[in-house]
């Protein structure tokens, strides 16, 4: 990315993030910066905390310590004196609306058509009329290569098509940041490419993205930075070429040898 953007305040700032489920420490003090327009890929073995880190960014997981800041605003908490007060549902809902998320299992609403899936949140949260939301939804469907499928139900679509609808649904909220939680892991191998292609186009259009994936090729080609997690810590981060071709850490080397 250009030098001008390097000097900007990062869009996402994560500091000292810790989270455990019972006795299981999942995040052990994560620090991470993501600049506007950058694509960050999170890599690591399963159980390394990638998904939990991603889910903390829109407060689907509450941190035990540390904080996540998006656009200068702390997610889920309000700083007052020496305390962080948990925010009410309404405020958290507003914060979430600015951060889109794409799930491994797509999580489309099966009882709604493709179009209804996409316009539900814009109508309810952004206050668009159904008509203008539908116009926008059709543009988005064209962008993800699914024009004409607006009245299909999710079950009538292939996994790759469903995931592209899920991306369109997230984009309909015009988020500042898109989170992808292993978006291609539930797909048949021949359908992975179509989803990655849509994600590549998004990255080129300047969307800020944080992607948990095992697609090393995608990381190498599209990512601005690659972050390698192990045991709830960042053990390696930097430009894809450095991290992927020249990992300094044994664990990273072992993981990459296994997936490549």
């Amino acid at each position: 990315m250009s030098a001008v953007e390097q000097t900007q305040e990062p869009l996402v700032r994560i500091r000292g993030l810790r989270k455990s489920f019972g006795a299981n420490l999942v995040l052990d003090g994560i620090d991470l910066d993501v600049r506007e327009g950058e694509v960050t890929v999170l890599l690591g073995p399963s159980g390394s905390g990638k998904s939990t880190l991603l889910r903390s960014i829109n407060h689907l997981e509450k941190p035990d310590a540390g904080f996540v800041e998006v656009g200068g605003e702390i997610i889920g908490y309000r700083h007052h004196g020496s305390r962080l007060h948990e925010l009410g549902h309404r405020t958290i809902t507003r914060q979430r609306a600015a951060v889109g998320m794409v799930f491994q299992q797509f999580n489309l609403f099966p009882h709604l058509t493709v179009l209804e899936n996409i316009i539900e949140a814009p109508v309810a949260v952004r206050g668009l009329t159904r008509k203008s939301a539908a116009v926008q939804a059709r543009e988005l469907l064209e962008r993800v290569g699914l024009d004409g499928r607006e009245s299909a139900y999710p079950r009538q679509l292939s996994g790759g098509q469903q995931q592209r609808v899920a991306i369109a649904r997230a984009l309909a909220m015009e988020p500042r940041l898109l989170l992808f939680d292993e978006p291609t892991s539930a797909l048949d191998p021949e359908l992975v490419g179509e989803v990655l292609a849509v994600m590549r186009d998004l990255a080129l259009s300047g969307m800020t993205m944080i992607v948990v994936t095992h697609e090393i090729g995608f990381a190498r080609e599209v990512a601005d930075s690659v972050v390698f997690l192990d045991g709830g810590r960042v053990i390696e981060s930097g430009a894809p070429a450095d991290v992927l071709d020249n990992p300094g850490h044994d664990r990273a080397r072992a993981f990459l040898a296994a997936v490549l």
Binding site: T93, G100, F109, A121, A170
Partner: peptide, 15 residues
Amino acid sequence: EHGQTEAAEALGLGR
């Protein structure tokens, strides 16, 4: 499925 609620929450829908 709980994923349905999570997807709706991630879109910023109210409870």
